[in-house]
Every structure is written in structure tokens, then in C-alpha cells.
Design a protein around this nucleic acid. Structure first.
Lengths: 346, 346
DNA sequence: CTTGTTTTGAGGCACGTGCGTCATTATTGA
DNA sequence: TCAATAATGACGCACGTGCCTCAAAACAAG
């Protein structure tokens, strides 16, 4: 017979029998209640090992009428990437509804660490089981996250990393993303040599900095004939953006590539397009949005370095759920890949 | 208050009250048992709509002690890609164990449609709830799949497509994958013009054919200075492979790129490497395996077009489960992306 | 020994659904 | 109208776990 029979999972009843105790005692051990002799605890633990017992989460949640209420604390910008995120949160809520997961989005002012901290402090364990926080790293936010966890609320840095929780966050390695942008741009430029314009909304954010670092490393190491110019910072000001981009093109007529570091690529790319520059100049931007996809299709953009918004959201939910259930989530599916999007695979 | 209260999901009890019937009748309607007047059915359905009732799958599975036993029917080749798939099946089994999912792998002879069909015919609903089938398209297999479904066993074409189930399969659009390979190769080659060698184990398989079609379309349309040579078919024979590759390089000294269509890139790439050809020749292959990743790292390969093996497996499981539960799985997470892997984002 | 304390067992209810049985009511046909 | 049939209700058990109470047993200290 080629097919193995399905192994019936042992229940707490089986455990009790194997350990020679009652179900009540097994229950006390499993749920860490006190009043059990160490010797008895050991016997039960041994039985758990021997039988390979894993408790039935569904049944447990049913009994507890446990439900998972997660909050995504996101910046309030009108950014298209953020819109995608919100869209995928709605979609994920449907997918996870059968696991009793519900999600809410709460917009925070990413420039006001105090208000973020205040908001996080208002959350109660009764209302919220976990929070995914997309916010720049500040001491206030860091402390608020620590307080959340003390109150028994799961917390997870989301997309924007927080140094203190190195392994425990959801997002891509921005340094590698920058390097990928550089490699793609460098290869697409080919043997031509010249300057590369680097545009960012601001170099204050950790994400932009890391991307830039990775970008420079790769260019310097593998494309010595290319020269990455200092970052042009738009500060979200369209007039300023237009001025500095035009000025840069003027003073660097050998520009062969443009790299938009920032999430919001709309402004810089629209400006670049209006300037009607040489179509041979290679243009790379980040994040898949309706705008960037359209730009790619009409060849106004040569490549997009992206992180899958849906995957980010679902991974965050799974990891928050994992924290609540005190399970460890499995690595390979939570690893967010750096996607390269071209015309043919968007 | 920024956070919405969690909506308590209505139960069958609520349904019964709302429809003015007993829980038994609600149950009869929900599970499609007969002996209920149409008028009553309608009233219950209306109540389902009104309350937005969705049955609690966990509780239902608990009551039925339902478990999902899936079989992956895979070719028996020693292919590294297939090894990855098997590895991810093991991993996925852990991830899905809390959903009562167990998976088995069964190797089939992909060249013997009869034995495949025989194997599928032996499966009983009691032993197996669903099958993911990776096999070339033949009438025998198609019919066996139809018989499976008649017997109430979910079936899903896996990676290898079957025309008859257009939308209902797990895998990538191979035509787009071929086009992506072409676009990447074309862009990497740059302004140089010349020939492109195309290597495949065999052009019999639908996958290879579709990739080749997509590849040619893209090259012809957007890279007129490049010429894709006729496919070199190795038939899995290493000696032959070496001969035809060397011969091709000899007669096409203007070769600027090499595209390995087949899943198993090891043989052709090893041969190419041994020939010590011009390192400027761009080399693109398919699928992420230890070999291709290593080749990418040491720059023996410029890019990989891949489909995420873990994602393929998990998607197959989710979709099989969806069929069994008679739910529709949500699109965006089941869409298998065409990954582009470079040195920096493997 | 007794007393007090800790540890354990027995049992029950709950969660939401599936699936029985049996009795009761509504509807139909003659 | 009466019997036959169809439709429905009332009720109970099951699934595996959490959590509670109360009593029984084991143990410690005096």
C-alpha cells in the first residue's frame, strides 16, 4: 500500500492514561497552572514526548472562544504602496476569518513618536491581541512596544524595522534590496559608463539609508565604470524636486541611470518623464503600485524592486498569531523575498 | 475608541432563531440533507444572508473528526528541483498540521500514463482526500482525474498543466516565464548583437514549448538584433549534450547568450562552464536549486527565472483543502509569481 | 496521633457543529 | 374524514480542550 494511514493524534485523555494521572492534572500541566508536584509534571512531560502530543489548537480556541484581534498601526500618508497594504489587510481578513482573526487599521502620525506611544498605551488586552507597527525607530515607540508586551499584547515591527528586535520583524533586507537595484541597473546599463542619479524623499529614514548603502556597495564593487551621485532629497516638495532633478541632469550630462529609493516613486518619475530625457537611461524604482506597474508597461521604468504587499500582511498576521499561541512560525514561508518585476512578470 | 469591537460570529443557534426554525432544520439545510420544504430552505438561506453566517470550520472538523490526507504524485526523476518540492512538502506538513492536514509523496513514472492512471484508480476516498498531480498531459491521466473527482477525491494539476483544467491548477504561466527570461537576457546583453543558444532536455513537454514560445515572442518583438537559435535537445544524454553544445558554439561564434529552458540546468551549465567560453556571454536558467544558486553566486549564471517551490506546495495544499471544504480560495495569494533571482536576492 | 496543607481525581459544563433517534405536527391523497 | 406521508422539533451524544468545583487522598508538621 503506497499511502500511509493517517496517524491519529493523541489527546489529553491518552496523555493522562500514559502518565498515569487524571485529565485534570494533565490539564494543569499543559496550561502551567500551579499545585502539581514536580515529579508529576515530569511524568506528564515525558508522556507528551513519548506520544508526540500536540494540543489541538482548534479545539482549544473553540473551548476558550479565543479570537485574534490584530491592529495594523500604519502611517497616514496617501502613498500608493500603503493603499496596497491596506487593501491586502482587508483581503487577508477574509482569508484568516476561519481562524477567528480580525484586523483593524489605525493610522498614526509617523512623525510624532509621542502620539504613537500614546496610542499604543491605550490598547488593552481585552480589545487587542496583537499589533503590527510600521513606524520609524524612536525611543518612545520602542518603550511603548516593550510596555505592550508586558501587558500581554503581541507586538511586531512591520516593514519599518526597529533595531532592537533584530530577527523579529516583517520586511525585507533593505540593504540587499538596494544592492539588487544596483545590480539590475548596472547590468541593464551594460558597458556604457556614466553617472547614476539617486532620488529619495529623505535620507532620514533607516530604510532609505540602508538601501543606499547596499546600492553603493554593489555599484562600487562590481560596476567601477558607474558613479552613483549624492542623493537628491525632495522632502516631498514637488517644486523643489523638479528643480534639483533638472539641475542634476544639467550638471551630469553623462547620466545613464536613475534610481528612486523612496517608496513613493510617482513624483520623481513624473518629473523625469516630463523632462523627456534619453530613453536609454535606465530607471529603477521600488514597490509595486498601480503607478509603477503602469510605468513599467509603457517602458517609462525598466525595473521594480518590490516586496509582496500581500505576503507582508499575511506573514505579519501569521507571526502575531504565532506569538499569541506561543508557537514558533516556520521560517521559510515568513521570509519576505525581494521581488524583481519586469514588464513580463508583473 | 479607535478599535472596533470584535463582531461575534453568529452560530447555527442564532440562525435557527432568526429563521424561526429548529437547529435540526438549520442543520439539514446547511448540510444539504433532504426532507425540507423549499419554503423553509429559502427562509434559512435568507437568515444566513441576513446574519452573514459562516460556519465555524474548526468546530465542524472537530465534530466530524475530519482530517485532510493529501497525496503529491510526482515524477521519480532525481532532479534537484523535485528534491526542493519534496522538502517543502515535508515542511508544509508541519505548518498545516494544526489544520489536520497530512501529506504523502508518491512517485509516478511520468512516461507511463497507464501506470499513473492505475495508481490514481487505486485511491479511495477513505484513504485520501485529495491529490496533486504533476504529470504531462495525456488522455489516460485526464480520464483518471475525472474518475477521481467522481469518487469525491479532490484533484489538482500541479506545476505541469493540463489544458482541460485551465484556471484550476497550481503553477506559473510558462509563456510569461519564457518571456521574462528573454527580457532579462536581452537587457543584460545590452547593445551587442548576436545569437542566443537555447538548450532543453526535450521540446516534447508542454512547459518547455510554452517557455520557448514566450522567449521567442519577446526576443523577436523587442530585441531584433538578437537571434534565438533552434533548441538544442539533450535528451538527458550528457555525451550528446556536450557534442551539440560545442558544435553550436563553433558554428555560432557570435553567441552572446545562453538560455537553459529545462528544469534541470545542471548538465548543460556544467558543460558550458567546462568549455570556458567568453564570460560576457549572458546565461539564464530556470528554477532555484542548490546548483543554480551556487552558479549564480560565482557568476557562472547571470539570472534565474524561478517559481517558489514552497509557495507552490502550500498553494496546492490550500487549494485542495478549499475544494474539500467547498470554499473558494482567494486569488491573490494563490497566484504563483515568476521570480527573478540575481546574486543579490537569492 | 491529629491537624493543616498540598496534591490529585472525578465530574461537569462550555465552545460550535455534525449526526443520530424519536415524537410531533403539517400536508397530502383517497 | 381518515390514513399515509412529509416536514419539523426536541433532545442527546460526540469531537478535544479549557476551566471550574468539590471531594478524596497524600503528605507535612506539630
Amino acid at each position: 500500500m503506497p499511502i500511509q494511514k493517517f496517524m491519529i493524534r493523541p489527546t489529553t485523555k491518552d496523555l493522562a492514561k500514559a502518565a498515569g494521572v487524571s485529565r485534570a492534572t494533565v490539564d494543569r500541566v499543559l496550561n502551567g497552572r500551579e499545585g502539581v508536584k514536580q515529579k508529576t509534571v515530569d511524568r506528564v512531560q515525558q508522556a507528551i514526548k513519548d506520544l508526540g502530543f500536540v494540543r489541538n489548537l482548534q479545539a482549544a480556541n473553540l473551548a476558550k472562544s479565543q479570537s485574534y484581534r490584530f491592529v495594523f498601526a500604519l502611517p497616514q500618508s496617501g502613498d500608493q504602496f500603503l493603499e496596497q497594504i491596506v487593501h491586502h489587510i482587508d483581503e487577508a481578513e477574509k482569508i484568516f476569518s476561519s481562524d477567528n482573526v480580525s484586523c483593524d487599521v489605525h493610522h498614526i502620525d509617523e512623525n510624532d513618536p509621542h502620539s504613537i506611544s500614546d496610542f499604543l498605551d491605550t490598547l488593552e488586552q481585552n480589545d487587542v491581541t496583537g499589533v503590527a507597527i510600521m513606524s520609524p525607530e524612536t525611543p518612545q515607540v520602542r518603550d511603548a512596544i516593550a510596555r505592550l508586551q508586558d501587558r500581554g499584547i503581541a507586538a511586531l515591527p512591520f516593514i519599518s524595522n526597529q533595531t532592537m528586535m533584530d530577527a523579529d520583524w516583517v520586511g525585507i533586507d533593505n540593504r540587499a534590496a538596494g544592492a539588487t537595484a544596483a545590480l539590475l541597473l548596472g547590468q541593464f546599463v551594460g558597458q556604457r559608463s556614466g553617472s547614476i542619479m539617486v532620488i529619495s524623499e529623505s535620507m532620514q529614514s533607516r530604510d532609505s539609508l540602508e538601501r543606499r548603502l547596499g546600492f553603493d556597495d554593489e555599484i562600487n564593487l562590481n560596476f567601477p565604470h558607474l558613479r552613483a551621485l549624492p542623493s537628491l532629497e525632495t522632502y516631498g516638495n514637488d517644486v523643489r524636486a523638479e528643480e534639483i532633478i533638472a539641475a542634476s541632469l544639467n550638471s551630469n550630462p553623462d547620466t545613464v541611470g536613475i534610481y528612486v529609493v523612496t517608496t513613493e516613486a510617482r513624483t520623481p518619475l513624473t518629473i523625469v518623464e516630463a523632462l523627456e530625457i534619453d530613453p536609454m537611461i535606465i530607471k529603477i524604482a521600488h514597490e509595486r503600485t498601480p503607478f509603477t506597474v503602469n510605468a513599467l508597461r509603457k517602458k517609462a521604468l525598466n525595473g521594480i524592486i518590490a516586496q509582496d504587499a500581500g505576503h507582508l500582511v499575511r506573514s505579519a498576521i501569521r507571526r502575531l498569531k504565532g506569538k499569541v499561541d506561543k508557537r514558533q512560525t516556520l521560517g521559510s514561508q515568513e521570509n519576505i523575498r525581494i521581488d524583481i518585476l519586469l514588464r513580463t512578470n508583473v
